[in-house]
């Protein structure tokens, strides 16, 4: 007689399968309907790629994309650099005062509700008279992207044995040389993962970008929101599908980096 697996519980498997179906149903719906020939979103009449052509020809969409990418690239670079510096000090400095407080401060944007932070920077910018829409977005995005860059980098630094840095110093490498030739190459997967996460968070952001939205600084999610307000259209589905594809691509890249890093470490 086969012993029943005591760790298994009845119904777990069907429940989990249902869960994953539910998790992917909405995404699948958007993707499928983006190829719908009909102008009405939910009435299927045939296969067509015309909505993709329409989306790519949409100038407002393209300029929103441009703004989003520009903001995301700059914010990612700044956030990653700031996070990298902070992570090095917080993981490598001995008897550092304010270590706990500093870690909390770096992670603060993750802990507090985004709408409050968005309101806060909105009032700040209006008080100091900052009117450049792009600059406002870059500053706000850099702030909330920093913890997303910080966490993977810190994890990587913590996972790396101190032996390697000591070996480098033992072999006559001055501190910065040791960092450049040993530490940085070894934590690079973490830095990439962090930067990628920060980039996606910036690209995806709606709450802050919407509140700071002002002349000439409409990001992609904010533009999509304005389209949704006008009603669901197949073109919207096409745009969403392109966005989904881009997100999944980046997510997969990060996953591969993580898995490879795990195998090595």
């Amino acid at each position: 007689m086969k012993q029943p697996n005591i760790r298994a519980y009845p119904g777990l498997r069907p429940l989990s399968i249902l869960f994953f179906l539910w998790l992917y149903l909405p995404i699948a719906v958007v993707v499928v309907y983006s190829f719908n020939d009909n102008r009405l979103v939910s009435v299927w009449t045939g296969f067509s790629t015309k909505w993709y052509a329409a989306a790519l020809a949409n100038e407002a969409l393209m300029s929103a994309l441009e703004i989003s990418v520009m903001v995301a690239v700059i914010a990612t670079l700044c956030a990653t650099l700031i996070a990298l510096l902070a992570a090095i000090v917080l993981t490598r400095a001995t008897d550092l005062r304010f270590r706990r407080v500093s870690e909390t401060v770096v992670n603060l944007p993750l802990l507090l509700p985004e709408i409050v932070l968005a309101v806060a920077v909105l009032i700040l910018f209006s008080q100091i008279g900052l009117t450049n829409g792009l600059l406002k977005l870059v500053l706000a995005h850099t702030a909330f992207c920093t913890p997303f860059a910080f966490l993977p980098i810190r994890a990587r630094l913590q996972g790396m044995s101190l032996d390697f840095e000591e070996a480098a110093r033992d072999l006559y490498a001055a501190p910065f040389t040791a960092f450049r030739l040993v530490t940085l190459p070894m934590i690079l997967p973490g830095v990439f993962a962090g930067a990628m996460t920060a980039f996606v968070m910036s690209m995806d952001d709606f709450i802050t970008s919407n509140l700071l939205n002002s002349g000439g600084a409409t990001t992609l999610p904010v533009y999509i929101f304005s389209l949704i307000r006008q009603g669901t259209t197949p073109e919207l589905n096409a745009i969403s599908t392109l966005l989904i594809a881009a997100s999944l691509l980046l997510a997969t890249l990060v996953l591969i980096l993580n898995v490879r890093a795990m195998r090595r470490g």
Partner: peptide, 26 residues
């Protein structure tokens, strides 16, 4: 003074030649 570490601490991203050459370069 040079050290042979308990877990060797060979740099995983370098070849053996590069590992041996590391100190000499510095």
């Amino acid at each position: 003074v040079n050290t042979v570490f308990q877990n060797y601490a060979l740099f995983p991203h370098m070849t053996l030649s590069q590992n041996i050459a590391f100190g000499l370069k510095n």
